[in-house]
Simulated assay, not measured.
Amino acid sequence: MIDPDDRQKLLELDDKIRALKAQDAPREERKDHHRQTEAGWRMVIELVSGLLIGVGIGYGLDSLFGTIPIFLILFTLLGFAAGINVMLRSAKELQSQDDTGTQGPDES
């Protein structure tokens, strides 16, 4: 049978252990709204850059070959599709980071 004095010591030890564990436990980080804004701008920039690259290549090929703007239309659509693809890949990456709770390489 446990002595009442020993029981009190065990309860005090348990309280000390819980206090130390609480100090070492990772603190909940509040979601930074700037992170979401940066992710949104990143996606917009990826989409627009895909479009601009497609327009540039299409216009350059049309100028080079002297054709009607068929290459401009074709590469604009391809640039748009590439921008959407990269944007979706970034969204999946951000979603997986949120699910696992890990931070990206540029976050501290």
Rank of each mutant, 00 (worst) to 15 (best):
G101Q: 08
D99S: 04
L13C: 11
K16I: 11
L74K: 01
K31R: 14
G56A: 09
S49M: 08
D24H: 04
G50H: 04
Y59E: 04
G101D: 05
R35N: 06
I53L: 10
D15M: 15
R18Q: 10
R7W: 10
G101I: 04
H34P: 00
L20R: 14
F65L: 09
G66Q: 09
A39W: 08
G83N: 10
D24N: 12
H34F: 12
I68G: 03
D15Q: 14
A82Q: 09
R18V: 05
L13V: 09
D99L: 11
A22P: 00
G50K: 01
L88C: 02
H34M: 05
A91T: 02
A39M: 02
F75A: 01
F65Y: 15
A22D: 14
F65D: 00
G60R: 05
Q36W: 14
L13D: 15
I73A: 05
A91G: 06
E38Q: 13
G79H: 02
T37S: 12
D24E: 08
I68D: 06
G56V: 11
A39T: 01
A25Y: 06
T37V: 14
M87K: 11
I53T: 11
Q97Y: 12
E29R: 06
A39D: 07
L64A: 08
S90Y: 13
G79S: 00
K92N: 02
Y59V: 09
R30N: 09
L78A: 08
G101E: 03
L78R: 03
M87N: 09
Q95E: 05
I68L: 07
L20Q: 14
M43H: 13
L52Y: 08
G50S: 13
L52Q: 02
R27V: 07
E29V: 14
L11I: 10
Q8P: 03
A25Q: 10
T100F: 12
D98R: 15
I17T: 14
